[in-house]
Simulated assay, not measured.
Amino acid sequence: MTGATTRNEERAPVGVDPTRASIARVYDAFLGGKDNYEIDRQVFEGVKAKAPEAQELALDNRAFLIRVCRFLAGQAEMDQFLDCGSGLPTAENIHQVVQRLQPEARVVYIDNDPVVLAHGRALLEENDRTHFSPADIYDPQAVLADEVVATHIDFTEPLAFLQLGTLHHFEGPKNRPQEIMREYIDALPSGSYVAISHFLDPENEHSTVARKMEEVFRHSPMGSGTFRTAAEIEDLFCGLELVEPGVVKCAEWWPDGPRLKPLSQVSHCIAGGVAYKP
């Protein structure tokens, strides 16, 4: 294990510190990926120790992302997507999902993690309608003014704007995530859609698990992971028209079929929704 970790660290891209946990790499560990280091796996294992099913947070979020993108490309007929905090490339990336339904769809991924940039740019070299920006997703004005975004996203036409599994990692003033979303939403043209997923405090018997995971995340080397209530998550949509069924547990947002087994307690602790801008 030590030798493997050392070899992995030696291959770290320029600008990457393999001794500091990365949100993108921790998610990669949750998804069973290999683009992570020992420090990221320590965070993953720490959360699992508190809630053995914690891996389902990432799996539920990813499955929600795929279903949302199918809806936006198929039913809503969106042909341009702006994805904030894309994370490391994995199976069923957004451009792969939406371009099956809208072959001409343009996708711009935004992430300033050096590992994500290194892997993402290599992956996307083979897709001329998919692009990557290193802007800071928590700085809307920087994103909106970014050259890659301005070149490939047409803000005079409807688009799909995605903040999936990102806002709960913002560390700063409590109301800033809603302010961030307000700045983005104000810039979106009429007819656009907004999708958000977020760690959830379900305010019931599962809240204890949510708060335990929050404690582990925020006091781990990763240092972030806020669990909000459903009402607080709904506020992030800034009054837009929510698509039915509104903000619900990610696993229950238009599932692919009937549920044959009960949700785990962790699946009660991540929620998402999609809204429309008239």
Rank of each mutant, 00 (worst) to 15 (best):
R106K: 12
E104L: 12
T5S: 14
T156N: 10
T166P: 02
A231V: 09
P258Y: 11
R67G: 02
V43I: 12
V149Q: 03
C250P: 01
E104F: 06
W254I: 01
M213G: 01
H131M: 04
S190A: 15
R182Q: 13
P52K: 13
Q42W: 13
T156I: 02
R129G: 02
T208K: 12
V14A: 15
R182N: 07
E104Y: 05
G191H: 08
P262N: 07
H219D: 09
R129V: 00
H268I: 02
A150N: 10
F217I: 06
A251I: 02
R129F: 03
Y276R: 14
M181S: 10
V26A: 08
Y138F: 15
L240A: 02
E53G: 03
D146Y: 04
V47I: 13
Y138I: 07
N36E: 09
A210F: 11
D28V: 09
R106Q: 09
I270G: 00
E241T: 15
Y27Q: 08
H219I: 03
R62I: 10
A160T: 05
T229Q: 02
R62Y: 07
K50H: 13
Y109G: 00
Y276A: 13
F227V: 00
N127C: 10
F227I: 00
A122I: 09
L167C: 01
D154N: 13
E203F: 06
G172Y: 04
H168T: 03
R218L: 05
E203S: 09
R121P: 04
E9H: 04
N8K: 10
Q265S: 12
P134G: 08
E215K: 12
P18E: 11
E104N: 13
P177Y: 09
V116Q: 00
A105W: 04
